[in-house]
Design a protein around this nucleic acid. Structure first.
Lengths: 338, 338
DNA sequence: CTGAAAGCGCTTACAG
DNA sequence: CTGAAAGCGCTTACAG
C-alpha cells in the first residue's frame, strides 16, 4: 500500500481537456486569457483545474513561450560582512515579489574580476532578465548584460548610462537628517566624515548634506568636513583633526564609519550625547543596539528589492514604467543626538 | 548596421548536426557521453561546438530529461540580522558549487508560518531538489518536502529523522576550545552562558563543553553554568549570578551573547583579558573587530554551502554518499583569552 | 556506431 | 469561439 498522492500522476493539460471533452488548445486559452473564449467554458475549465489540482508545468511553458520565468539576481560574493543584512533583506524582497508574479529568483554570485557565473546563466538562457543588487564600480556587469541583450535593472546608482535604476532617495534623506540636526540643537557645530567619493552614494550624501545649509541659519564650516575616508589610517587622521575643532555633533557617512567613531569616542571617554552628538547616514542593526542607539537614516532594503523585481518584470512584459524609481527614507531620531 | 552578434541566431543542435553532415542524435550523444560513439566523431563534434560557440538550451534539455537543473535554497526571511553573514556566505558557497555542476540555485524565502514560496516552487516543478539552510524548529519544512517526494538536504541539525544532514562538528569544536582554555591558564575557573537548549546546536555545544572536562584536571562547577539564556532578562540574571562566583573566564554560546557580555563588562569597567577572559563558541566579524578581538570557534559557512550543494547533486544523480557529512572547525585564539 | 522518429507538456498561428 | 497540428530544442528507445 502506497500513499494516495504519490502514485497519482500529476495532471496535465490533456487530462483536464479530456475530462471536459474539449481540446488542449481551449484549455490553454482559458488559462492564459489570450484569444477569445466563451465565459462558460472558461469557468468550466477553472472549476476543473481546481478540482484536479492542476498546475502547469512551467518548464514546458518556458520552452514553448521562449521565456524562463526566472530572473537572475547578481549578488557580490566579495562583499563586506557588514553589508550582508542589506543584501539579505533585499533578496527577501526580491523573492517575495517574484513569487507574486510566478517568477523565480536565481542566484548569481559575482566577484570583482570574476563574472563567470553571470556568463554561464546568460549562455544557458536560464533567466529572462537580471537584477544587479550592486554594480561593479567599473560598470562591467552592466556592459556584459547589455552586450548580451539581457534586460536588467540595477539597485543603487550605475556608471552605465541608460540603465534602469532603483534607488533610495539619499539626497533628500541626508538633507532631512542634516536639517533636523541643525534645527534641533542650535547652533549645532556639524562635523562630517564621508567615505570614498568615487561611490555615487557618497556623492549623493554629500549633496544632501550641503543642501541642508542653503535654507539654514548656520553656514558650512569646511574645516569640519572630511571626505574620501576609506581606510583606517585616513579615519584616524580625519578624526584627530576633526576633534580639535570641537564639533558638537558628528555625522558619519555610513554605519561602518560610525562604529569606528563610537569605539574611538568610547576609548577617549567622550560621552554621547552629552559631550558629543553622533548620527549616521546609514542605519544598521548595530547602530540600533548601541547604547545610546544612534540617530540615523533608514532605507527599506526589502522594498528596494521588491521594487526592482517589480520593475524588471514590467520590463519583461513590456509594461510601461519609469526609468528611475526612487524610494523614500525614514529618519530615526534616537538617543545619540538628544 | 547592427552588431555582429545580435543578428546571428544562437546555434542549436541541428545547426551543428548540419554543419557536420550527421544527425542530431549523434551530436546529442557526443555531448552527453551516453551511448557508444566513435571517438573520431565525438572530437569532430566538440571542435564544431567550440567553433560555433554552441551552448545547449537548458530549458529544452530540462523538458525532455524531466529535470530542471535547478535546486531550491530555503532561506529564512525572519532571521535575526546578526545571522545574515552566515546565510550570505552559505549562499555564496551554494551558488559556486551549483555553477560547477551546471545547476542553478533558486531562492525560496520562508517564514515561521508561511511556506507558500516553497509550495509554489514544488508545485511548479521548478527545482530538482532543495537545500534547507535553516530548518524550522518544528520540522515542517522537511515534512512538506518529504510528502512532496522532493529530495532535500539540510544544513545543521534536523528534528526530522532520515534527513541528510550537513553540519559543522560543533561537539568537537566546543570540546577543543574548552580544552584549550582549561590548559592555557590553569586553574581556569570557567563560566558558560548558553542559549535556548531546544536548539540542537546548543545541545551539541553543551556536550562538547562537558566532554572537555573528562580528561582534564579541573572538574565542572555547576554554579558557573547557565543554559537556556535566550532573552535579555535571562541574560542579565545569569550574568549577575555568574559574576558573583568570580570566574576567570566566560565562554559564550554564540556571538550575540558574547556581544552583550562584552558591552556589560565594558560598562562595569572589567578589563579583558586582564580581569576576565572571554571566548565564544561561534565567531562573527563583530568578534574579530572588538578590542581585544575575541577567541572563538570558526566554522566555514561557504564550505557548508558548497558541501550541501554537492551532496544534494550527488543525491539527484544517484551517486553514493554519506547520510551525514560533518565539517571541521578552526580554533581562533585571540586577544581576549591571553 | 548512427539515424529517423517519437516524446517531454506546453503555446499559437491557422483554418473553420 | 474552438480544434487539429506544428513547433519550442532537446533526449532516447528502437531499429539498423
Amino acid at each position: 500500500m502506497t500513499n494516495n498522492k504519490s502514485n497519482q500522476r500529476k495532471p496535465q493539460l490533456e487530462d483536464i481537456a479530456e475530462a471536459l471533452g474539449i481540446s488542449k488548445s481551449t484549455v490553454s486559452r482559458a488559462i492564459s486569457g489570450k484569444g477569445r473564449i466563451r465565459a462558460e467554458t472558461r469557468e468550466k475549465v477553472f472549476a476543473c483545474i481546481k478540482e484536479m489540482n492542476y498546475r502547469p508545468n512551467m518548464i514546458a511553458k518556458s520552452l514553448s513561450e521562449r521565456r524562463t520565468y526566472n530572473i537572475g539576481v547578481v549578488v557580490p560574493m566579495d562583499q563586506n560582512e557588514m553589508e550582508a543584512p542589506f543584501f539579505q533583506t533585499c533578496l527577501n524582497g526580491i523573492a517575495k515579489e517574484c513569487a507574486v508574479h510566478d517568477y523565480d529568483a536565481v542566484l548569481i554570485g559575482t566577484e570583482k574580476d570574476n563574472l563567470s557565473q553571470l556568463q554561464r546563466v546568460i549562455q544557458n538562457r536560464k533567466v529572462d532578465g537580471v537584477i544587479v543588487t550592486r554594480p561593479a564600480s567599473d560598470g562591467s556587469i552592466e556592459e556584459l548584460l547589455d552586450s548580451s541583450d539581457m534586460p536588467f535593472v540595477v539597485v543603487g546608482r550605475s556608471v552605465h548610462s541608460n540603465s534602469i535604476i532603483i534607488d533610495s532617495d539619499h539626497v533628500n534623506g541626508c538633507k532631512a537628517l542634516t536639517s533636523y540636526l541643525l534645527l534641533a540643537n542650535p547652533p549645532e557645530k556639524l562635523g562630517l566624515i564621508l567615505g570614498n567619493m568615487e561611490h555615487t552614494v557618497n556623492k549623493s550624501r554629500y549633496a544632501g548634506f550641503m543642501s541642508a545649509f542653503s535654507g539654514a541659519e548656520q553656514h558650512i564650516d569646511e574645516r569640519l568636513l572630511f571626505t574620501g575616508v576609506d581606510s583606517d589610517l585616513k579615519f584616524s587622521k580625519a578624526v584627530a583633526l576633526l576633534l580639535k575643532e570641537k564639533p558638537s555633533c558628528i555625522i558619519c557617512g555610513d554605519d561602518v564609519i560610525c562604529m569606528k567613531l563610537l569605539a574611538l569616542l568610547n576609548e577617549k571617554g567622550i560621552a554621547i550625547p552629552s559631550q558629543m552628538r553622533v548620527a549616521s547616514f546609514y542605519d544598521s542593526v548595530y547602530l540600533d543596539s548601541c547604547s545610546p542607539p544612534v540617530t540615523s537614516l533608514y532605507f527599506d532594503a526589502a522594498k528596494l528589492g521588491s521594487a526592482s523585481a517589480d520593475r524588471l518584470i514590467d520590463l519583461l512584459t513590456d509594461t510601461e514604467a519609469e526609468d528611475t524609481v526612487s524610494l523614500g527614507f525614514e529618519l530615526l531620531i534616537r538617543g545619540s543626538t538628544l
